[in-house]
Structures are given as structure tokens and as C-alpha cells.
Design a protein around this nucleic acid. Structure first.
Lengths: 343, 343
DNA sequence: AGGAGCATCCAAAGCGCTTTGGGAGGAGGC
DNA sequence: GCCTCCTCCCAAAGCGCTTTGGATGCTCCT
């Protein structure tokens, strides 16, 4: 049997009230007393009973994730990674998950149910699209939430954590231009996803600033798997005037692209430069590529952890977190980028 | 404010005791009374407060998953799919998840913590290895659990849900042999995983029965991604006497293999036959392959749902489920299999 | 000296459910 | 007719925490 608050209080010769307050950081407790309490907690290994806390406070101490079931996002390699970060953080705080697989047409209902039932204190969504309707729904539902990514268009008055996709791909493109590349291709994520739109924008902007244009035939959108990276690259190489550099929205895509390049008898970094966005997937490290990959890096797992921290922090109202965060992806140069051929 | 038990009882002119008993299926309630109660529940939309139930019963109404963090299993395409099935079922019963990412060396500690803390009523593990030590630990911990897969070696006295991997690959191999194939290759999952060992066993057995041997140079083990499928196939094709048929442990592997075959100027189903195991991933349907794939099929999502059902059923002790289930994978013939060339 | 004002602490009332320990009333046995 | 035994229901006591609404001294001021 675990130690209970009552026993702890008796042990200390204090009331439950005081012990509880000491633990929850209320001011009306003498500093010395609080220290004594904390010491006793350490010694006895006391852990408050979550069920009792839930009942007494009305908080759920759990967070909900609505995971789109369509198009196999669940079996998206990137989703598990994000989830792992989220979970790791949640476990630390003894928070639970309510994972809600939900078809897009049921999403609104799922949100409502979650908000009404009170089974979660806050929820989180991802895979933002342009003008994503979910944000308005969530705002109207008065349940705290954080989105991973940002929508495009519409008011930007909601809590999010995103990486600066535009800047990342802008900077990557600028590097390529500086290296003398002109024909630059983009193998991107699905067209309706916000991050993909922004990355394309970054590329377009950089090209424009240096007086070039993004050739639309050099842009492909698809699910971000190896397979599609390969196909896209292959098609680029078949063009009369193939690109000398390629940007990939994920290392998975890059894997396929590299294969296509090798197959064509070309060398990565010499004949064709590659820069990929690296979500820091443990299974797909850019430094392990036959030619180590230049990347824009931002850890998906860290993002997951951060979202959890913010969500949980908000619920416990401990500490104060920025409502909106835009992480910068570092541009890390490795061997897959080099001067444009003939320069 | 949601309806509470007390209000419901008042409405019905009954005591809370009786209503509670009616809802929880206790026998000492008149059948008519029970019907009245159920009707009132439907009309008022009453839902028992989980926090209160947790406190009163001492049950957690949640299940734990210990997910290995190493080798990027979280970003394994198959994991999310299984999880989705599990989650969908859990949501139906208002159960929570406690997702525990855990490094292999911390796994035992994680199990102990989970079992001791009482934050979960039961847990589930997967990615079984041969002589998997986790089973003994779990048994000693006296916490209900179900494993997805089976260990190899050691007593088989624990609850599991597995597919009959040996039979699946035995039957697939038999089909290939009947079609005249002799040199049969296997692109398998990682060598230490139980399912991979069994699949290889199935292949070996079938070959042996028809008087052939499995050529060890035609067996590759790796993470099951597209990339490795490609590499393996490529190496097979470089052999002086390449295989005329290939078995793949996942459609992802098959995707890569098909690419390597096409690249070599060969035709799937004619020059080389392929059979893959299909976990029914929404993103990778065998019927969408350029040459539709012959597969051994068993839905991973369904398995997840089933594990959840059993776990939850056990906790609520509703209904009774078999302790051990071995699902048969159907062999579905499509166009990727054909007679061995020259036959 | 007599309050006012603060810093600390406590007893007790919930939170919404389950479960224990009866109790009333009718059926059945002798 | 009386007692026993079911059947069906109820009052009340928790489950382990948080929180309200005071108490109790002490210090400080006038």
C-alpha cells in the first residue's frame, strides 16, 4: 500500500490541509514547514493519488490527441516520432493520453465530445492545412489546445508551435544559389499541408530575390516516403534540362532521391546537390547517407515534448509559456551540397 | 453540467445504490427496475464520472504501452497502424493510454513503475524477440498483460495475440514451389525479432518438404523500409544465379524490391514472382502496385483493436476471451506471382 | 494596553461513484 | 400461524485528495 496524504500528515504532526498546500505551492505555508513536508515526501516516496486529485479538482490530468485516420497518417513515419516526444514528457508528469483516431468527417464531433465530456483538459492537433477549419472549431469550444504547425490564412490568434518553414527553405535555397545553382527542384510534402506551402514559398522567395524563377515542373508534391522521393527525382532527371540541385521536405524523400541520382550514374554533391529537411528520425540520419546530407534540422521529438510541456504547464498553471513559438531550423552543411557543375 | 448518479436516482425514485447496481450488472436488481434505469440513462445521457469510478474502485481504467524507443520503432510505419487500432477501441470504452517510450535498458524499471504505481490496469508489449526477457518480468509483476506476437523458446504460458507467421510463409512458399520456383529469396525483418525467425522457418520448412534448401545467401534481414527492400533485391539480382521468386516481410520492403526488379529490366510476375506480407497499411495497398501484389494478409489495425478488447474485457471482467490467439493470414493471389521462367 | 493585521495552521465538507451491512416484505415450509 | 429464506432495495461509509471558512498566536501601531 502506498503512503497516503493522511498518513503523511500524521507522521509530520500536521493537518492534511497544510501538507496538501505545501505540496501544491500555496503561499500560506511556512517555508520551514514546507521543507519538512518535502523531506518527508522524499523519504516516504509519497505520490498523490491521481484518481483522487482528478475527482477533487475536476481536472482530467490528461491530454487528447485527435489523429486523422485518413490517408494513413498513423502509419506516417513522422507521427510516431512526434508522439514519442509528447509521451515521454507526459509520463514525467503522470499525464494520460486519449488518442482519438478520427476520420476527417468526424473530427468536429470528436472535438465536441472531447470538450464536453471533460475527459481531457487540453488537446493537440497537427497536420495543418491551409485555412484549416479545425482551429475555429477548437476556439469556439473553449478547450485549451496547441497546434503543431500553423494554418495559412485566417486570424493567427491561437497557440501553436511551428518551425519557420519558409525561412528554412529560403536559407537552404539561398545557399544553393550562392553555390551557383539556378535550376533548383523541390520534392515536397502533400500540397494541401501548410508546411509544404510555406517551404515552397521560401524557395520561391529566395529564387526571386536573386532574379530567378521557380520552375513549376521542378516541384512535386506527395506523401513523404522514400518511394515518392525516388519517383520524383527520376522524373526530374528525365527532363531535357534537369535540375542541378534538389530540396527535399524530408530525409525519407531524400533517400529515394539519392537512389535515383546514383542510378542515373550521377554523384550527389558533385553533379547534383541535395538539401533535405531533417526531422531527426532515429532511423534516418543524414550523416549516415552514403554522401552525408546537408539539412535543415529541427527535432520532431523535441517539438512533441515541447507541445506536451506547454499543454501540461497550462493545465497545472505552472510557469508561463509563450503562446506562439516559431522555431528556427538550423542549416547544417554536409557533403551533399557543392558548387553547381560547370562553375 | 452533466447528470450525476444522485440526480438520476432521484429522478427514478431509487437509491444511488440500486441505480449503480443496475448499471453494473449486479443480480440483485429487478429486471423491470433495470430496464427503467437503462431507459433513464438513455434519456438523460448520463455517463458515470470516470474519476469517481477510478477512486471508488481503485481501477485505473487505462492501459499502458511500453514502446521501445531504440532503433526508432516509434517511427516504424507499422507501429502507428497498430496503435490506431488499439486507440480506436480504447476510446469506445473511455479508457486512457499511458504511452511509455522507454529505452531497452530501462524497460524493466518502466514495467515495475507501471505495475507499482497502479496508473494502469494492464499493459501491452510488442516487437517480441526470441527468448524475450520481458515476459518473465511481466509475469512476476502480477499485472495483466497481453503481448502482440510470441516469443520463441521458453514457456508459452502467457496471453498473446499473434499471427501464424510460420504457416503464412510456409503456404506462400508452397505456392511458389508449385509454380515451379526453386531459387526463392527472403527479404525479412530484423533478425532478432520473433516474427522474422518464424517466417524464415516457414520458408525453410516448405522448401525442405519439397526437397530443396533455403540458400542463406538469399536471405536478408533488415528494418522493414522500402530502402532496404531495394538494396536487398539489388544484391540478389547481382548474384550469378538470381532467385526467381522473393518473399517480403512487408509491403514496404516489397515496394523497394519491385523497384529494383523493374530497374533491372525485369518484370514482376513474369521474370520474378513476389509475395509480400500485407499488414493492411492504408498507405501501401498491394492492389495499387503497378503489378498487384500477391500477399499474405492480416490487418495490423484489427490486431490492435483486438488486443485492446481483450485487455479492456479482462479489466472490466466482461465476457471471456481466449488467452492465446493465433490468427491465420490469408494468402491472396494477385498478379505478382506466376510460373517460374522457363517452365 | 487594545486592536488591527499578518502569518500559519486546522477541521470538515465536499468531488461522484462503489460497496458494505442491513431491512422490509412476500413466498414457502412445518 | 410462525419462522426461515429469498428478493429487492436503501442509508451511509468510504476512496484520497482539495478547498472553504475559520482559528490561533504574534507583531506592530497608536
Amino acid at each position: 500500500m502506498p503512503v497516503k496524504l493522511k498518513q503523511l500528515a500524521e507522521l509530520l504532526g500536521l493537518s492534511q490541509t497544510t501538507v496538501s498546500r505545501a505540496l501544491n505551492g500555496y503561499p500560506e505555508v511556512n517555508a520551514k514547514t514546507r521543507q519538512r513536508v518535502l523531506k518527508a515526501v522524499r523519504e516516504t516516496g509519497y505520490r498523490p493519488n491521481r484518481a483522487a486529485q482528478r475527482l477533487a479538482t475536476g481536472k482530467a490530468y490528461s491530454i487528447g490527441l485527435v489523429m486523422p485516420i485518413a490517408s494513413g497518417i498513423g502509419s506516417d513515419i513522422h507521427f510516431g516520432e512526434f508522439l514519442a516526444g509528447l509521451a515521454e514528457e507526459a509520463v514525467k508528469h503522470d499525464f494520460h493520453f486519449v488518442l482519438n483516431p478520427s476520420a476527417p468527417e468526424d473530427e468536429e464531433a470528436t472535438f465536441r465530445r472531447l470538450a464536453a465530456s471533460g475527459t481531457v483538459d487540453a488537446l493537440f492537433i497537427a497536420h495543418m492545412r491551409a485555412n484549416d477549419p479545425r482551429i475555429a472549431i477548437l476556439k469556439s469550444l473553449s478547450i485549451p489546445f496547441v497546434v503543431h504547425g500553423r494554418s495559412i490564412g485566417g486570424p493567427r490568434d491561437y497557440p501553436f508551435l511551428d518551425i519557420d518553414n519558409t525561412a528554412a527553405f529560403y536559407e537552404a535555397t539561398r545557399l544553393l544559389i550562392q553555390l551557383g545553382h539556378r535550376r533548383i527542384a523541390l520534392i515536397n510534402g502533400q500540397e494541401h499541408l501548410a508546411f509544404a506551402i510555406r517551404r515552397k514559398k521560401g524557395v520561391t522567395r529566395a529564387l526571386k530575390e536573386w532574379g530567378h524563377d521557380l520552375d513549376e515542373t521542378l516541384v512535386h508534391h506527395s506523401v513523404m516516403t522514400d518511394e515518392y522521393g525516388y519517383r520524383s527525382m527520376q522524373r526530374f532527371l528525365e527532363q531535357p534540362e534537369p535540375p542541378t540541385a534538389v530540396l527535399c521536405s524530408s530525409t525519407a524523400l531524400a533517400l529515394g532521391a539519392v537512389r535515383a541520382i546514383n542510378q542515373a550514374g550521377l554523384t550527389v554533391g558533385t553533379d547534383i546537390s541535395i538539401i533535405a529537411h531533417d526531422d531527426v528520425l532515429p532511423m534516418l540520419k543524414p550523416e549516415n547517407f552514403s554522401v552525408p546530407l546537408t539539412t535543415t534540422r529541427s527535432s520532431l521529438r523535441a517539438a512533441g515534448a515541447r507541445v506536451a510541456t506547454r499543454l501540461i504547464g497550462g493545465i497545472l498553471d505552472r510557469g508561463t509559456y509563450p503562446d506562439q513559438e516559431l522555431w528556427h531550423a538550423e542549416l547544417i552543411v554536409r557533403a551533399s551540397t557543392g558548387p553547381a557543375p560547370g562553375k
